[in-house]
Design a protein around this nucleic acid. Structure first.
Length: 258
DNA sequence: AGCGTATTTCCTGTTT
DNA sequence: CAAACAGGAAATACGC
């Protein structure tokens, strides 16, 4: 089943990456329709419709496949014998157990799972919608500074898309733990230098966020170059390397620790 | 409706 | 040669 994980039909960036979007928002978005379109067109509920704690073994399998597709994880690094597990068991594992269980992708998968669980803590914008039956989960793994919290708080629109600029999108990606390092990584965090690892993947992520499937790295990089004149970014004379400028903020003082 | 800002799109030329 | 970089110019999107 995971054989097809290496396909590139789906993009490594989805709204899941968007740290300002709740899981509820994600699964109700158009993006998720694209993502889950291919899901077992069937009778039983997809894993997206069930809280992780209640996943069946099949759901867990589907979720793993989704993660491999979306985050370009190497499915071969996940011991296939480990797929036979229920959501309850999955959720009961500590981070260490999880990493032990899932191998090299463990940390990433653990993060994604915790994200799924934490993000469904009711932010209920729509009162008519019944609160999901999800249990509150342990959020102690994520410790943000006040700056981050207020940033997130002020950026989140009541309902609808937060007005995130490209540089903020990039910054938040860099500040969010998970598998982003395969796409974007710090080169020298202290002075704000970062490197685009997978240029087209980053472009697709940005395109997904802007609901623009014609986004390319060429166009994204043009937008980044516009930032040079405003001091949001500074030029670094190396390919795919950028540096936050004096007018960029929030990239130094947030540390999210897993 | 008009405006300013932030991209997006396209393009030509240069560099790695 | 392919992929990036550089910017100019114009079009678009969007909030105010």
């Amino acid at each position: 089943m995971l054989d097809s994980c290496t396909n590139n039909a789906l993009l490594p960036g989805t709204a899941l990456y968007e740290p300002l979007m709740t899981w509820t928002e994600f699964i109700s978005s158009e993006d998720s329709l694209q993502v889950f379109d291919h899901e077992s067109g069937g009778s039983s509920a997809a894993w997206t419709a069930v809280p992780p704690e209640h996943w069946t073994r099949h759901h867990v399998c589907d979720w793993l496949q989704f993660c491999c597709d979306q985050y370009k994880l190497d499915s071969n690094s996940i011991p296939t014998s480990q797929f036979d597990i229920t959501g309850a068991q999955l959720c009961s594992m500590s981070k260490e157990e999880f990493i032990d269980w899932a191998g090299i992708c463990g940390e990433c998968l653990y993060f994604i799972l915790q994200n799924l669980r934490t993000n469904v803590i009711p932010v209920c914008d729509s009162p008519e919608e019944e609160s999901p039956p999800f249990k509150e989960c342990d959020t102690k793994e994520m410790q943000c500074t006040e700056d981050t919290k207020t940033h997130k708080g002020t950026n989140r629109a009541k309902s609808g898309q937060p007005a995130t600029h490209l540089w903020e999108f990039v910054r938040d990606l860099l500040l969010t733990p998970g598998d982003h390092r395969q796409i974007l990584e710090w080169e020298d965090r202290d002075i704000g230098i970062f490197r685009v690892v997978k240029s087209e993947a980053l472009a697709r992520m940005w395109g997904l966020k802007k609901k623009n499937n014609k986004m390319t790295y060429e166009k994204l990089s043009r937008a980044l170059r516009h930032y040079y004149k405003t001091g949001i970014l500074e030029r670094v004379d190396r390919r795919l390397v950028y540096k936050f400028g004096k007018n960029a903020h929030g990239w130094q003082d947030c540390k999210i620790v897993m």
